[in-house]
Nucleic acid binder design. Structure first.
Length: 473
RNA sequence: GGCGCUAUCGUCUAGGGGCCUAGGACACAGCCCUCUCAAGGCUGGUACACGGGUUCGAAUCCCGUUAGCGCUACCA
């Protein structure tokens, strides 16, 4: 294949959706695989809903995911003149015609048909104004929209993911390509831009298949060869409906905030509707680009289930080096208002990350270890250790004695474990009864890394203080 | 309503006529490991929507039914 040119063309009317992100990812992967070019084009022709802020959020989301573009971002709004010229060229060549019907007249007709139980369709002949009225409006200089005269025959294409898809031109209404204010409608603008930008493959969501026959007709009328189209399946919520806000987090930024790693998000998204074949699931960026192909894209929609995303994130967390995680954890701690006093967080992150699924989890655990006031308490402010009763306070006293004999320079997991095992043996206690009270005293919870490691990570002075506090309460 | 797309475990998927008494992963259950919880290892249950063809043989090809989804704007 000659180097393809693809594009991702979001409209800045909302945040970067996971569906949009996946479409961008597929385009990017495809371009990378074939050493092609990935163009970013912001489709801001809907001036009512498009905002600069949304554009920034979309760009940030893409950068976060590591999806880089080779050209752009281009803004569709700045090509209005070309769009209009193309529409007028179609008018001049007889592929389109003027429509003097106003939006209000059209709406009224739509209402009328609907009220009588019919289905509205725009038929050129039946909707056309009488010739004299037409002429009157034209000479009066009344505004008109330009409507494309949809050819009647079959329009089919070999879809890169679905195979052959066929439509009948007769089933498609003549559609407006230029508004009466002179601005182009979506399908016109897209085709005009894709032609201009030399796009060879249009990879987009399934919700666009019904636009494709219209766009192919436009390409032909304009005298251009249509590109190859590939329609990737929709992403659904857990109820099988199109993914939307009411399903919870749908914006890429939401997952960033939840402490998902970009690599995990990218890996997960890539596997939603695509598979490298076989059993491989954890894929690096280069494995992804090497094995990516349109042929392996699933043709059925996929449900977006975050459980597996979190599992995958946990895998990335344990695989990644603590130094790579440091920045994200620090940012999270800052948001939580935890002061780290310049402490070295690396060993702490290292010991809690295998028990975490998100950066948020990591930060919460780091917070407890770094700041005693973060110890988990119940609603009444009582630490769990108090509820354990007197049974273990004696053990904590023994622990405290033994641990305080360990000098600062030897405050390491091995020495600590040795001391605690000795306590258990000399007092004929179960190891768990010696260890678990410490865990509760230090964290307020019953779950953590191995106790010797926990003690090492919290530090000698602070550990002894927490144990003393707990045994006296 | 019309048109189009789709249909393998609860979910993501492998599979492209015999290798499938359908494989992997998440989730779930149990066991091992073990001071707790994860991680890791092992084991288990759960799926080819339905009905017709084609074929020696169909999850795989064809047709129909059903269901789901999408589109049906002077939105994108």
């Amino acid at each position: 294949m000659t180097a393809p040119r693809v594009r991702f063309a979001p409209s800045p009317t909302g945040y970067l959706h996971v569906g949009g992100a996946r479409t961008a990812l597929f385009n990017w992967l495809f371009a990378k695989h074939y050493h092609g070019t990935f163009v970013l084009r912001i489709e801001d022709t809907d001036k009512e809903r498009s905002t600069e802020a949304h554009t920034q959020v979309i760009l940030d989301g893409m950068r976060w995911l590591g999806i880089t573009w080779d050209e752009g971002p281009f803004f569709q709004g700045s090509y209005a003149a070309r769009h209009r010229a193309d529409a007028e060229r179609l008018l001049a060549s007889g592929h389109a015609y003027k429509d003097f019907l106003t939006a209000a007249e059209l709406d009224a007709e739509r209402e009328r048909i609907k009220a009588s139980g019919g289905v509205f369709r725009y038929h050129r002949r039946s909707m056309e104004l009488p010739a004299d009225e037409q002429a009157r409006r034209e000479s009066a200089g009344m505004p008109y929209a330009i409507r494309f005269a949809m050819p009647e025959g079959e329009i089919a294409w070999d879809d890169a993911v679905h195979g052959r898809i066929s439509w009948q031109g007769a089933d498609i209404d003549d559609f407006i390509i230029l508004r009466s204010d002179g601005s182009a409608i979506y399908n016109m603008a897209v085709v005009s831009d894709d032609v201009e930008m030399n796009i060879s493959h249009v990879i987009r969501g399934d919700d666009h298949v019904s636009n494709t026959p219209k766009q192919i007709a436009l390409y032909r009328a304009l005298g251009h060869e249509p590109p190859i189209f590939g329609h990737v399946p929709m992403i659904l919520g857990t109820d099988g409906k199109k993914l939307s806000k009411r399903h919870g987090a749908t914006a890429v930024g939401d997952y960033q905030d939840m402490g998902i790693l970009p690599g995990a998000m990218r890996n997960f998204l890539a596997l939603l509707g695509w598979s490298p074949g076989g059993d491989r699931e954890m894929l690096t960026e280069s494995e992804l680009t090497e094995s990516f192909s349109l042929e392996h894209i699933q043709s059925k929609p996929a449900v977006f289930d975050t459980t597996k995303l979190e599992w995958m994130n946990g895998q990335y967390l344990s695989l990644m080096d603590s130094t790579e995680l440091l920045k994200a954890v620090e940012r999270q701690l800052e948001r939580m208002g935890v002061a780290t006093d310049g402490r070295n967080l690396l060993p702490i992150i290292n010991s809690v990350k295998t028990r975490s699924r998100t950066i948020l989890n990591v930060a919460e655990q780091v917070a407890v270890r770094v700041d005693g006031s973060r110890i988990v308490r119940d609603d009444k402010g009582t630490a769990l250790v108090a509820k354990m009763g007197d049974r273990f306070s004696g053990h904590l006293t023994l622990d405290h004695e033994a641990l305080s004999r360990i000098p600062e320079f030897d405050w390491l997991p091995e020495a600590i474990e040795g001391a605690l095992r000795t306590v258990a043996e000399t007092h004929s206690l179960k190891l768990g009864d010696v260890m678990q009270p410490i865990r509760v005293a230090l964290t307020g919870g019953t779950v953590s890394e191995p106790v010797p490691e926990l003690l090492a990570v919290v530090g000698r002075e602070e550990s002894l203080r927490r144990i003393a506090d707990a045994s006296s309460s």
